[in-house]
Amino acid sequence: MLETTWFVLWGVLWAVYFMLDGFDLGLGVLQRFLPKDETEKRIIYSIMGPVWDGNEVWLITAGGVTFAAFPKTYAVMFSSLYSALLLLLFALIIRAVALEFRGQVDSPAWRKLWDNAALIGSFLPALLLGVAFANIFKGIPINEHGVNQGSLCSLLNPYGLAGGVLFVLLFLLHGALWLAVRTTNDFQARAVRLSGRLWSVLLVVAVLFLALSRAFTNLWTNYINHPVLLLIPFGAVCCLLWIRISLARKNCLAAWVSSAGVIVLCTLFGVVGLYPNLLPSSLNPDWSMSIYNSSSSPLTLKIMLGVALVFVPLVIIYQFMVYRFFSYKVTRENVAEEVY
């Protein structure tokens, strides 16, 4: 029971990370293409600026919880995905530095350098996280000692790539919708139009991904055995459709919340499908990392649960307050008065 509780928490932490950093990563890509001038660029940066760091801590916590609750999974998963993971971390470093350093020197060439850095540093993590998680859903070739027999290239199989494309699209749409929530006038209108286009593409890719999941993974087994769980993918589809409806009603916030729902439920769809595995072995099911062979001791799980039950809600409360504090519309007029 304790192990299952932690399994659920583990999935939720990753889902919340994708939901929050997702729009940052999406905006990090969009800043290179959507703005018409420097002011619009600054609008995007000042939307990401106050929150990216707090969002990224969800990744650190998700990683930390993998370590704490399922140390063996942490060990096997992170060493198996060695090159992809370090590439992801390097990209996130570049992204973070780009956001903070861009405004430090007043020169177009300097800003362009960091715009490009932010683009790479946002696109790569979105893609890599998608590729990594699709491969986790599918299983990777780990042997009985937890050693990966594949390589970085073997992660780039059709299903892995489909996961990568799905994540990129999810995050782009999520970012465009957040931009629509936080901006006004023409810029907002363009963000809404872009969201509409991204939505159509996403719909196709999402349906394709669910179908591919049937062909390449065992994710659906749990759903067939426990049909009530089908509410998760059903909810994801409903949220996806609700984005379109909200856009038509010009309710950007509802569209963004729906998009958050899509991201969370898509992640949970995969995680619930994995249960009780955290990292299946594609070579032999007995070699999979599961809650049975990789959990921490009951004492550790209990202490951690106590910590999580107190602090995670607290974090959610203060981050929610911070989001409300920064919920004002960023306009061409007020963007200049920000910070340093």
Partner: peptide, 30 residues
């Protein structure tokens, strides 16, 4: 710790990992 020291992580994660996770949730978030 996971990428390069997986044997360490698997061996002592029960203790060491929980301290890192507590650090993230209690302090680093704030």
């Amino acid at each position: 710790f996971g990428t390069n020291w997986s044997r360490y992580s698997a061996y002592v994660g029960d203790i060491f990992g929980s301290l890192l996770a507590i650090e993230a949730s209690v302090a680093f978030f704030l």
